[in-house]
Design a protein around this nucleic acid. Structure first.
Length: 658
RNA sequence: GCUGCUGUAGCUCAGAGGUAGAGCACUCCCUUGGUAAGGGAGAGGUCGAGAGUUCAAUUCUCUCCAGCAGCACCA
């Protein structure tokens, strides 16, 4: 028998017969390890305890203590056990796929009747039965045709499709526990009893589609699963906390904005929310000015001709708000819904700013000396987003981008890209986001332009990201048909990621809209256009900002910064004086001289997320001080009026002005 | 847009085939109280919209609208 050498994490190596399994190795080390073992990592690959090892390798045996592999395995097998439970209860249900997710798993089923909440309870109970049965898991590698035939015979069309989707060189691994079978590459636990029956919960049913095919509706049951009950409990607590941070809830509680049926996907900003919005906008305007951008403003209602010329009409007309105007209308008696076709002009609310910016660029001749030309707009756009896509103020139909387009030469792209990443990093940091993800989307299959040009432009972006020393995720084939892009992602309260910033290279639109410049050699040339947004849209970014801070916005952004609260009515005059002094240095301060106890006022303004409460009673009046209390802190501080005005005045400055 | 669920007072929710309730918030009165809810009284609803079944619909059925979760989409 051939011997192989296995190296353990501590560096020691031992020799075993070739074909030894990690289960054998664990048993060889100790009885208790053999019992506790759940999987192994062999040469960096997550390995089933039952799979043979045939060559020299490094090995680490995992138990439940090893969080990452343990959770991976548990969730994976929960998915299988759930699918089995479903098929045992409803044998006519077709199974599809059931991957592991961030906190659990889901499994998609094809079943004519909808699953109900009561069904979920029944499934959970059945899952516990299966776990208690401690059915051993068995896997076999099968020949592709045999597996295909097997699923044909068993009436599992989705599995047949899956077999066909498995790459040529990959093994087809069949998996059983009890009498139940699935197709799965593994690895797996050794028996169903290794699953913690008290550490999972089915979270709900939703719809899904088979590999993006909208004609095939499936039902997705998702669950969360952990190593033990405590971890599950901690997760449920996290969910409750996250719900309190939801921007839709805080938007109401803090009186920031509302939305209503008559304007789905559009925001009614209240005074508090609009203060946040305009404060952020003022900040961005200063940053952009310093960054070498010129600000412009362009029309909302634009004739379809421009969208046809830009190419957007063809591709996106169904997602545009169309405004038809009968220009022959002349009298007050005309019914606005009746149109004289001949004289009707079809416009679209602008869904994006770029074509308009090219119109501004195209006014007058441009020289190579004008490039790079950075044109910014807080551009209000409208897109008829599918109803199911709307989500609070994060995904809306009316929004304002902090948009800009940089007209430049191909050679300037890298420098402009690096500049932009610096700009964005600086802004995100000042707004409290050190943590964001960059995704680099490269040339798709269907594209325009030469390979040399793609090589050059992709290279420019890649060099620019590398220059700032940040990690990025490569998304091959996800670029637009005309150029590669970088997208910048932030995370909301429950971990959903949202695209905020973006940077796209576009040689196409200048071509379509005939933008050009006179080069140093006197020839007319075509500029590149770089589309970029830093926050993305004010709506989405403010949504993220609210969730990130749980509503406790940094002082300079907080809509209500200071409440000056009287303790007795004798303090009222002095309260007014304090409010005036703070207002004079740019602090948003308000008086609360209502006939209420200080406890009541402190509670109310704390709930309202006001960062600073200044309480004023008889003592403060005589001493000309204030009693300062910060949100989230229990202790108070007595500060002289002049000092508090200075302190809060400084704090009210935006980070770029300090 | 698709699948499923939801829609009752400003908010969170209860309710039943015979035209509505609680807590908080709101208004007024009493209370001038020292850092997260003092006490009392009052006002407030076309039960998302429309149609149907019924003697009778907020309740049952259908259609539409909006919201929620996921999918699909996201220039």
């Amino acid at each position: 028998m051939t011997q192989i050498s296995l190296t353990f994490p501590d560096g020691n190596a031992r020799s075993f017969d070739a074909g030894v399994t990690p289960a054998d190795v664990a048993a060889d080390i100790s009885n208790s390890l053999a019992k506790k073992a759940i999987s192994a990592t062999v040469d960096g690959e997550h390995w089933d305890l039952a799979w043979p090892i045939k060559t020299d390798a490094s090995i680490a045996i995992h138990t439940l203590k090893d969080e990452a592999p343990a959770l991976e395995l548990i969730r994976h097998d929960f998915a299988h056990v759930m699918a089995r439970a479903v098929q045992e209860i409803w044998p006519d249900v077709k199974v599809t796929i059931g991957p592991v997710t961030e906190h659990g798993w889901f499994y998609d089923f094809d079943r004519a009747e909808p699953f109900t909440p009561e069904d979920l309870g029944q499934i959970e109970a059945k899952m516990k039965e299966i776990i208690n049965a401690r059915d051993p898991v068995r896997t076999e590698v099968w020949d592709r045709e045999r597996a295909r035939q097997f699923y044909m015979d068993n009436g599992e069309p989705y599995k047949v499709d899956l077999v066909d989707r498995i790459p040529e060189d990959a093994d087809i691994r069949m998996y059983w526990h009890g009498g139940w079978q699935d197709l799965c590459r593994g690895p797996h636990l050794q028996h169903t009893g290794q699953l913690p029956a008290d550490a999972f919960k089915l979270m709900g049913v939703s719809g899904s589609h088979w590999f993006g095919d909208v004609t095939k509706n499936l039902q997705r049951i998702s669950g969360v699963g952990f190593r033990n009950r405590e971890e599950l409990k901690a997760y449920m607590t996290f969910l409750e906390e996250a719900e309190k941070r939801d921007h839709r809830r805080l938007g109401r509680e803090m009186d920031l904005f509302h939305m209503q049926e008559e304007a789905p996907g559009q925001v009614f900003w209240h005074p508090n929310g609009w203060t946040v919005y305009t404060t952020l906008q003022d900040y961005m305007r200063r940053k952009q000015r310093k960054g070498g951008y010129q600000e412009v403003n362009t029309p909302q209602v634009v004739d379809r001709k421009l969208w046809e010329a830009s190419g957007h009409w063809e591709k996106y007309q169904h997602n545009m708000f169309i405004v038809e105007v009968d220009e022959s209308r002349d009298g007050e008696n005309d019914d606005a819904t009746v149109r004289n076709k001949e004289h009707t002009r079809i416009n679209a609310l602008k869904p994006m700013n770029c074509p308009c910016h090219v119109q501004v660029y195209n006014q007058g001749l441009k020289s190579y000396r004008d490039l790079p030309l950075r044109m910014a707009e807080f551009g209000s756009c409208a897109r008829f987003e599918p109803s199911g896509a709307l989500h609070g103020i994060m995904r809306v139909r009316g929004f304002t981008q902090d948009d800009a387009h940089i007209f430049c030469t191909e050679d300037q792209i890298q420098e402009e890209c690096a500049r932009f990443i610096d700009f964005l990093e600086d802004v995100y940091r000042e707004l409290g986001f050190d943590d964001f993800e960059i995704r680099f989307a490269t040339r798709p299959e269907k594209r325009v332009g030469t390979e040399e040009s793609w090589d050059h432009v992709e290279g420019a972006l890649e060099n620019a990201i590398k220059a700032v020393g940040r990690d990025y995720v490569l998304e091959p084939g996800d670029g637009t048909f005309y150029g590669p892009k970088l997208d910048f992602y932030l995370t909301d309260a429950i971990g959903r990621v949202w695209q905020c910033g973006t940077f796209q290279v576009d040689p196409n639109l200048p071509e379509r809209l005939d933008a050009n410049y006179i080069d140093s050699d006197g020839d007319k040339k075509r500029p590149f256009m770089l589309h970029r947004a830093c926050l993305g849209s004010f709506e989405r970014f403010i949504g993220i900002l609210i969730e990130e801070h749980s509503g406790k916005l940094p002082f300079w952004l907080a809509p209500r910064q200071v409440v000056v609260a009287s303790i007795t009515s004798e303090a009222d005059d002095y309260v007014a004086e304090v409010v005036d002094a703070l207002t004079a240095v740019g602090v948003r301060a308000e008086a609360d001289v209502r006939n209420e106890k200080i406890n009541y006022k402190v509670r109310e303004h704390s709930v309202g997320k006001v960062p600073v409460i200044l309480a004023i009673g008889g003592r403060e009046v005589t001493e000309r001080t204030v009693s300062l209390r910060r949100l989230g802190e229990k202790q108070t501080r007595t500060v002289a009026l002049d000092d508090v005005v200075k302190e809060l005045g400084d704090e009210a400055l935006a980070p770029d002005l300090r």
